Simulated assay, not measured.
Amino acid sequence: MKVVIALSVLAVVGTVTALKCFTCNSQTDSACNDLFNSDSPALQQAFIVDCDEKDGVTPFCRKVKYAIKNSSEYRVQRDCGYMRREGYDCYQKRSEDYVMDTCQCENDLCNNAPSLSTSVATMFAVAVPIVARFL
Rank of each mutant, 00 (worst) to 15 (best):
S115L: 13
M100R: 10
P41K: 08
M100A: 14
G87M: 06
Q45W: 05
S71G: 01
N33M: 08
V16L: 13
S71N: 06
C24H: 11
E53S: 10
D34A: 14
L43K: 00
S30K: 15
F47M: 12
C61A: 12
V99I: 08
E86C: 00
R94H: 04
D101C: 05
T17N: 07
L116H: 08
K93C: 02
T15Y: 13
A6H: 03
Y88A: 10
R78Y: 07
K69Y: 03
I68Y: 08
P114F: 08
A46H: 10
D108E: 10
I5T: 12
Q104G: 02
Y91H: 05
R133C: 09
V49T: 11
A42S: 14
C21L: 06
C90T: 01
C105Q: 03
R85E: 09
M1R: 14
N70F: 08
G87S: 07
G81E: 02
S26Y: 00
L109G: 00
C21N: 02
D34W: 08
V49G: 00
P59G: 09
F124P: 04
A67C: 06
Y66V: 14
Q104L: 09
V76P: 01
E106H: 13
S38Y: 15
V128K: 03
K20Q: 13
V13A: 14
Y91V: 00
V4C: 13
T118L: 14
P129S: 09
F124Y: 15
R84M: 12
N25Q: 12
V49N: 04
L43H: 06
E86S: 10
M100G: 03
Q27P: 02
M123D: 10
A46S: 14
F22P: 05
Q27R: 15
G56A: 06
V99G: 05
M100N: 07
K2F: 05
A132V: 06
R94M: 06
Q104I: 03
T102M: 01
L116V: 08
C103W: 04
S71A: 01
K93S: 03
A121E: 00
R78H: 10
Q104C: 09
D34L: 14
C32S: 03
C103I: 05
D39E: 14
M123A: 15
V13H: 06
A121G: 10
Y74I: 00
L7M: 15
V16A: 12
V3E: 07
C110P: 09
V120P: 03
A127E: 07
A6K: 02
P114T: 10
L35A: 15
V13E: 06
N107A: 12
A42C: 05
